[in-house]
Design a binder for these strands. Sequence first.
DNA 1: GAGCCTGATGAATCACGCG
DNA 2: CCGCGTGATTCATCAGGCT
Lengths: 360, 360
Amino acid sequence: MSVQGSMPLGEVLVGDCVEIMKGLPAGSVDMIFADPPYNLQLGGELTRPNNSRVDGVEDSWDRFDDFAAYDHFTNAWLRQARRLLKPDGTLWVIGSYHNIFRVGAGLQDLGFWILNDVIWRKSNPMPNFRGRRFTNAHETLIWASKDQEANYTFNYRSMKALNEDLQMRSDWFIPICGGQERLRDSEGKKAHSTQKPEALLHRCLLASTKPGEVVLDPFFGSGTTGAVARKLGRRWVGIEREEKYAAVARKRISRVQPGDPESLQITEKREQKRVPFGWLVERGLLEAGTTLVSYNGRYRAKVRSDGTLVTEGFSGSIHQVGAHVQGAPACNGWQFWCLNAEGKRVPIDVLRDKLRAELN
Amino acid sequence: MSVQGSMPLGEVLVGDCVEIMKGLPAGSVDMIFADPPYNLQLGGELTRPNNSRVDGVEDSWDRFDDFAAYDHFTNAWLRQARRLLKPDGTLWVIGSYHNIFRVGAGLQDLGFWILNDVIWRKSNPMPNFRGRRFTNAHETLIWASKDQEANYTFNYRSMKALNEDLQMRSDWFIPICGGQERLRDSEGKKAHSTQKPEALLHRCLLASTKPGEVVLDPFFGSGTTGAVARKLGRRWVGIEREEKYAAVARKRISRVQPGDPESLQITEKREQKRVPFGWLVERGLLEAGTTLVSYNGRYRAKVRSDGTLVTEGFSGSIHQVGAHVQGAPACNGWQFWCLNAEGKRVPIDVLRDKLRAELN
DNA sequence: GAGCCTGATGAATCACGCG
DNA sequence: CCGCGTGATTCATCAGGCT
């Protein structure tokens, strides 16, 4: 058994990611973002029609003898990822058709529960020069919890806000990393061949973590995960096999302005403090005896001094009475019941909001 | 060994697809489109915010004991699919994150060579009613040949034409099947719970088959593959486990107007008649002695009467000379060499097009 | 007929905390 | 650990009915 130290937050650890993960404490990570080698089987060089050479991925870290070797490697790092995650932590993995099916099946076999697969649609993909296939214009991300029962984090409201107040879909349109964002060496060459755009990590981190939580990236590369984590006030740990890339990442992240806590604060509705309906009556925001109307005008009920409602032959909480009159199994009374205000029906939820504001 | 008959073209065979495929002749199919069960593993019932019930997929054909059982089933039908395909035939499979990773890994293990994964982006997916995940707004298709060396069909020009003369990308935006297209029984209920849109099949068939070729769908369902195949002048065979669905499909397909051969004709450049460069000189579209310039203006060469080019100390075909001056292993001379026309450089390929038009 | 409103529905792995 | 109560939660499209 290996000796397990504490989490080296804000550091890039250099070495084999499986071995290094073995030395980290179990259940200490809230989210893992992994961009493993793609197992690209490029047959020789790829050239453009005019013979200029495409600078593809041919680094030694991206070569595996066969699928069995790749599966073995995948299983090893996924096992460690699973061990390091907290019970409610989640895993993101990105890949292409060369490797993502093997990774997806592998993580399902280990008990991970897939929450979504997400498509990164590239605004500016490389064309298919030979005209023999469809332009490969996307990559696939898998988002998974440790098991089916996990109470994972999903910042629904933040995602909805990012998408013009419509639910965020599973297809994301984001440009590839280029221009000023792309890290280059002194000769102008790409510092890393598969640098991911910060916008992609921004969305993953914002969707599935809270400020201050711990994010691990076992294939750190040029450190995009660390840079965005710092920007978003998340804590991070990176693992990178090559010191060359680790150095690039450290320098890059040190220049990132950390996000200020206040602007990072987001409140999901489901996290707000509970306000019982009765408090509205106690506090005088609603008088006992007031008649409430259902949102569609079909039902009426009277408010009692203890915070229950009463309608013909039935009484109970706002939720119970709402469900009863509709003959429905459940009902959110806050949205169902309304006040008549200036001829318009207003959900009693607005009174709850008002009280919550007073209570702060 | 089972007795193998001939291909029952235009028929829906009722029974277990693996068993039926075993009875069909090897190497007899040009393309297979497969929409296997997704193994959704749905839990209890799901209601919309208005308390109406979501009509999920609860059919018996989608229930498997565990991943092992699903993998076993997947391996069995993929093996038969492989046996039935001609050497240059291709396989399409559609799935969701529940099953596609297992199918993708399984077909790679059998030696299939993935050409693309294609994303069907739904214009109108069902929302995520509980706000716990991203809206699952896509499904994934895998397109694969039997092996890496296969000379598969890809109708590049047709796909490009379908996409406003830009290369067709791997992400397709297509509405789900509803409205008039959705087959319903006499009570207005869905005839099949997972009917695919014809637009999706149209694109798959148009991309990867020629008129008259044989298409097999081992999970025929309501027969979308057959209907579109008939419309596009492809021959088809369907296999469906339930007679109920087979009957629906037969009736549906019988009403389809077969495409007329002329309008199905498409011209892929690679199938056009070969036109040697020398013919341009013979026919007078280009005079011997003309000086050609490379597309980037760096190199020059002179046309000789026999259709060869000559430059400083080297002569040969347009391709050989193009490769030589660049020091490249190969070169497409039709695109590399240009004429100076009205101050602009125009590839000599335009002269070939002109001659081809004259030769018709 | 045009326009507006209401209701239905689609391959869906769809709560959570407290007592 | 289970049971129960509170309460969070939907987008695009089509069919049909009413003004």
